[in-house]
């Protein structure tokens, strides 16, 4: 029998209720504050701004600490415990620092059917980290996500620059080789610009042509799959596409 790890053995669970500290109080930048003020005019309650405020916070601070929760709690008039509940409920808010580039590999069905597992292994090997881990240089963090609503690009990876929060790019369909090339490219880009990486490529469409070449196909992936298509680019992806 193959090893069967029980949920109970997940050490993260016992830390499930932990919040990290940033070491001292935090405050929004003037721009963040201004954005927040504008947001307050868009909703009938202050509480409704909690999630948008957390987005601003994640952009400004990179992750959500106990201090950030206190800040948002005060601004939105919601008890800190409830803001904490909100933070913990949604998957996109980081409760600890993440690498500069956040790689989220979809491991839901359509991506699994087309080899996400293999891509995951290649990424782990290439980066030398496990799921949930961050590379020693702090450049990459690797997580799995559920279906990204980009199954036609399966297996698909979402690449996000943590501090910019809003430049998520989808890359797919990936295979092992493509994943390795992507990591190299991202590293080169990141080293060239110590400031936040501009983006994975021109943000013309949500998906980026996969840099790889057809290579090692895992057993469960159809060899006939269309490669390199994007949701808006050439190739067959939408009903408007060529066929």
């Amino acid at each position: 029998m193959q090893p069967f790890a029980t949920p109970a053995e997940d050490p993260a669970l016992r830390e499930a209720c932990r919040l990290e500290s940033m070491g001292g109080p935090v405050a929004f930048s003037a721009a963040g504050q201004a954005e927040l003020e504008r947001l307050f005019t868009r909703y009938p309650t202050r509480e409704a701004v909690v999630v948008p405020a957390l987005w601003i916070a994640q952009r400004e601070f990179g992750w959500i600490s106990a201090e950030v929760i206190t800040l948002v709690s005060g601004l939105c008039g919601v008890a800190p415990s409830h803001v904490y509940g909100v933070v913990s409920f949604y998957t996109m808010f980081h409760r600890r620092p993440r690498g500069r580039i956040h790689l989220q590999l979809c491991t839901n069905l359509s991506c699994q059917l087309r080899g996400a597992e293999h891509v995951l292994n290649c990424l782990r090997e290439k980066l030398g980290i496990e799921l949930g881990g961050t590379t020693a240089d702090g450049l990459f963090s690797l997580d799995e996500v559920e279906c990204l609503a980009a199954c036609e690009l399966a297996p698909v990876l979402q690449v996000t620059e943590t501090r910019r929060a809003e430049n998520d790019s989808l890359v797919g369909p990936l295979d092992g080789e493509a994943a390795r090339i992507l990591i190299d490219e991202l590293r080169v880009q990141a080293e060239a610009s110590p400031a936040p990486v501009a983006s994975v490529g021109p943000v013309a469409d949500s998906a980026h042509r996969c840099p790889g070449v057809p290579g090692d196909m895992p057993t469960n992936m159809s060899s006939g799959g269309v490669r390199g298509v994007t949701s808006g680019g050439p190739g067959r992806a939408s009903s408007g596409g060529a066929h």
Partner: peptide, 10 residues
């Protein structure tokens, strides 16, 4: 009205 408690995670 003190709101100390919350259910976290899902």
């Amino acid at each position: 009205g003190t709101g100390e408690l919350s259910i976290v995670n899902r």
